[in-house]
């Protein structure tokens, strides 16, 4: 068991439409991810990186290929079968909370649906919010009453409180200020050191990924064109597209 990777995506493809309207989004995608690893997936809008997350989390069915979790195939299952393993963090964090519920209510619902018992739910929720560096009193606010960075940290806390095996982040920080973004990375980094964290970190920001990920995959038009450690990708890019992306990174001069 332990030898099998936590997540394996084997020859996965996805297309929309039929006949003439057929539109390939992902083709022959292979990813494997070990426990405790953070994989960055980098690509520009339209390259299919968000679709990939939807496929992994079963929010959409795959068109071809197989998905494995700890060596067991789970292709074609429903979100409710895999929701204990995966949690998704979205770019638009405010929209990721029901606007008519307080943060605490949303988190309670997650806990209730995923873990069943809610005896020490409040304690769990507050502990997790504190780990993300926020005041637990903020949990009684509505999402629109918090700043973007705060809501995003709340949504991370919500994902973590149910202790999933893998966290899928979809452009998690790109709607935020640089300082709020750096804050989130710091807390995630601390969490990783404290209790281990397996993540797929989808982003268009190479510089950001290179500071945080163990491996980076460069995606273009539904294919992974290059995959490697940050050192390999940033210092010795092989593929033309990787070089192009690297060239476009705006470091502070």
């Amino acid at each position: 068991m332990s030898s099998a990777p936590l997540l394996e995506v084997r020859d996965v493809a996805k297309h929309y439409g039929r006949g003439k309207k057929r539109h390939e989004v992902l083709t022959d995608l292979n990813i494997s991810l070990n426990e405790g690893e953070v994989l960055g997936i980098i690509g520009e809008s339209g390259c299919g990186k968000s679709v990939l997350l939807n496929l992994i989390s079963c929010l959409e069915p795959v068109s071809a290929g197989q998905l494995f979790f700890k060596g067991e195939e789970y292709t074609g299952k429903k979100p409710k079968d895999v929701c204990r393993w995966f949690q998704v963090i979205f770019q638009d964090s405010e929209a990721a909370f029901d606007p008519k519920m307080t943060i605490r209510q949303s988190m309670h619902e997650n806990l209730r649906l995923l873990s069943g018992d809610s005896k020490d739910a409040d304690a769990k929720i507050e502990a997790m919010i504190e780990i993300m560096g926020l005041n637990p009193a903020l949990a009684d606010r509505y999402p629109r009453q918090l700043s973007g960075g705060q809501v995003q940290r709340m949504s991370i806390a919500r994902s973590l409180v149910t202790e999933p095996n893998l966290i899928l982040c979809d452009e998690m920080t790109s709607a935020l200020d640089v300082s709020a973004q750096a804050m989130i990375l710091q807390y995630l980094y601390k969490l990783r050191q404290k209790r281990g964290l397996t993540m797929i970190f989808v982003s268009h920001d190479m510089a950001l990924c290179s500071t945080f990920c163990d491996r980076m995959a460069i995606m273009k038009d539904g294919k992974i064109v290059e995959i490697g450690t940050p050192e390999q990708i940033m210092d010795h890019p092989q593929h033309e597209y990787t070089k192009l992306l690297l060239d476009a990174v705006l470091y502070v001069k």
Binding site: S57, L59, K80, D81, F90, L113, L114
Partner: peptide, 11 residues
Amino acid sequence: PYIDSVRMTGS
């Protein structure tokens, strides 16, 4: 997204 995230709780 919040509907997706509710779906991801198996609701």
